[in-house]
């Protein structure tokens, strides 16, 4: 169990974190989601021990580790740019954590065997003699992961783990990482600014903004019941209708009459539905909504009537 209690952090005049409280249970896969400057990476680095909080505590299994260094906390950290050791081979990179161990260092042959085992785990068998410069982005990412796992971390921390990869590789790696997390019984926290990634991967999502936690919940909760206008806007698409009402594009339907009149500006195909962009008459508000592709597409310049099926209201 990882507990973060009332953690604050400032850099000069900039308050990066204002009193963060968070609990992570063993085996959980948690996403810290937020825009840049929200404090998510700072929080991750504080949990790791790469940064130290100004106030509050970080507890690992009830023990205050606030004054422990990153090396003593036994956490696996995967850096955004991987931070592989350029002059070492892949196998040496993976073995690093074991070969620098001062107490109870395994024998050379055992270290080598363990590195090979880890490379097999991340599906890079046979690449141990290469240098990081000779690998693709996705392969480097997996080396970084194997290296972090070599020290048998009690907690795996990943900073924007897919940020530097192209879309296809990213998608494959995501699923693979999720499986690895399950099969190894890890407790993992990752930082991302990509809401889709957070919703797809995590058991729980921590939405952050301006150094505060806006909402903690399952992907379902965060998406369906956003706790604040910020979460509603940041997680998934949202229309802000008059009167502080938020509605998702797929929660808006066309009605024959009695709805809100909308002037259609643009219509295009998106998967199995039409995406319609328009303006509410009398307001300058832009609305986006989906119409099932089995229905005829609204025409440009036409005025249609809409009604939200499901809304969230926020007092402004």
């Amino acid at each position: 169990m990882i507990r973060v209690q009332n953690v604050t952090k400032t850099f000069g005049d900039f308050a990066a974190l204002h009193g963060i409280d968070l609990e992570i249970k063993p085996g959980e896969f948690v996403a810290l989601l937020g825009p840049s400057g929200s404090g998510k990476t700072t929080l991750l680095r504080i949990i790791a021990g790469l940064e130290f909080q100004d106030g509050g505590e970080v507890l690992f299994d009830g023990e205050d580790v606030s004054s422990r260094s990153v090396g003593e906390r036994q956490v696996g950290f995967v850096f955004q740019q991987y931070a592989l050791f350029k002059h070492m081979t892949v196998a040496e990179n993976v073995a690093f954590g074991l070969s620098v161990r001062r107490k109870g260092r395994p024998a050379k042959a055992d270290i080598r065997a363990r590195a090979e085992e880890l490379l097999r785990l991340v599906q890079l068998e046979g690449l141990g003699k290469r240098y990081p410069g000779q690998l693709s982005g996705g392969q480097r990412q997996r080396v970084a992961l194997a290296r972090a796992l070599a020290i048998e971390p009690r907690l795996l921390l990943l900073d924007e783990p897919f940020g530097a990869l192209d879309a296809k590789v990213r998608k494959d790696l995501r699923r693979w990482l999720r499986d690895l997390h399950e099969s190894m019984g890890l407790t993992s926290i990752f930082v991302t600014h990509d809401q889709e990634e957070a919703l797809e991967l995590a058991d729980r999502v921590v939405v952050m903004d301006h150094g505060r936690i806006e909402q903690v919940g399952t992907p379902e909760q965060v998406y369906m019941e956003p706790a604040s206008p910020f979460v509603s806007n940041f997680v998934g698409e949202t229309n802000q209708l008059p009167g502080g009402v938020h509605a998702r594009p797929h929660d808006i339907e066309l009605v024959g009459e009695g709805g809100t009149p909308v002037l259609v500006d643009n219509v295009f195909r998106r998967g199995g539905s039409w995406r319609v962009e328009g303006r509410i008459e009398g307001h300058d508000k832009v609305v986006e909504f989906d119409v099932d592709a089995s229905q005829p597409a609204p025409k440009l310049g036409e005025t249609v009537q809409i009604r939200p099926r499901r809304v969230r209201e926020f007092s402004s």
């Binding site: 790469l50 090396g71 036994q74 956490v75 931070a83 050791f85 350029k86 620098v100 972090a148």
Partner: peptide
């Protein structure tokens, strides 16, 4: 980054510098 990676893997300051 590489130094931080090394210390997170348990290397001492000297080991980090040296390796």
């Amino acid at each position: 980054d590489e130094e931080e990676a090394a210390i997170s893997l348990g290397a001492s300051g000297w080991q980090t510098f040296r390796h």
